[in-house]
């Protein structure tokens, strides 16, 4: 597989070229290139500490917010390299949303405010526009029916699974073209997990999703393509069914058959 020099092959929405990432002197992501077709779901899987989360955080320039962190390489979003000199990470992050491992609704904010805050702080003042966006996003996150009568309740008062869907709604509200998800179900019970997986598949219609998971079944259930990470390197990247039925690299095979990891 050779994706190195392709900037933006046709309908590849997101294209990472030679991404390296460090925490101080610790080289955790080693020259990874990966392309994500639009309206698809790409899963990044691998054992703990393989660099998959760090790589994900390079895709919206969040990695560099950690003290001592460094990145090199390029990430093309459509026609734009988000690491180009002079690019404002703030404008990039508006187009590339993120959902985190642990549900993290904003404290001391109502459900409504949690969803509306991104737009409000971006300058949207109209009450009607905000209400409309909140409803659309909560519907998009399959949470509307459960919270429509208590939009003024604290976001933190919801259950864990609901909180995570609230976080998805919050990310959807600013209408990103890519949604990054960092093990979004690892803190949730199986029923909440199933709901979120169902939601992820439904979201594909309007967004492109990159999801980190160390749950093999999850990668198999939701994704179109799967990348296998090991010790900071990408071992293999292919169509999900192929990765799970006919992996090319025997390390991938060992991992998916449960021999390590």
């Amino acid at each position: 597989m050779n994706v190195e020099t392709v900037h933006t092959a046709q309908n590849q929405l997101l294209q990472a070229n030679h991404i390296n990432a460090w925490f101080s002197e610790n080289h955790v992501v080693k020259g990874i290139s990966l392309s994500v077709p639009s309206n698809s779901i790409v899963a990044l899987m691998g054992p703990s500490g393989c660099g998959k989360s760090t790589f994900l955080r390079c895709l919206n320039r969040l990695h560099e917010e950690v003290p001592g962190a460094k990145v090199s390489g390029e990430v093309w979003l459509s026609e734009k390299n988000i690491y180009a000199r002079g690019t404002d990470p703030v404008s990039i992050r508006r187009q590339i949303g993120m959902v985190f491992q642990k549900p993290n609704p904003f404290p001391s904010m109502s459900i409504f405010d949690n969803v509306a805050v991104g737009l409000r702080l971006a300058g949207v003042r109209s009450r009607a526009a905000l209400s409309e966006a909140v409803e659309r996003s909560l519907r998009g996150a399959a949470l509307w029916d459960e919270v429509k009568d208590k939009l003024k309740a604290q976001g933190m008062s919801l259950s864990g699974g609901q909180q995570q869907r609230l976080c998805i709604a919050r990310a959807l509200a600013v209408d990103p073209s890519v949604l990054l998800m960092d093990e979004p179900t690892s803190a949730l019970d199986p029923i909440s997990t199933a709901k979120i997986e169902e939601l992820i598949v439904a979201l594909k219609a309007n967004t492109t999703i990159v999801i980190v998971t160390h749950n093999l079944q999850q990668a198999a259930r939701v994704s179109d393509r799967t990348a296998f990470f090991l010790m900071g390197e990408m071992v293999e990247y292919d169509v999900t069914t192929k990765i799970f039925t006919n992996p090319q690299d025997n390390r991938t095979e060992e991992y998916i058959t449960g021999r390590f990891g």
Partner: peptide, 20 residues
């Protein structure tokens, strides 16, 4: 995680600090 969630929404750091 709260700060990062704010940054990930595409908000400038000063707005994240002051309003979130």
């Amino acid at each position: 995680a709260t700060r990062e969630a704010g940054l990930a929404l595409g908000l400038p750091r000063w707005k994240v600090i002051l309003f979130i």
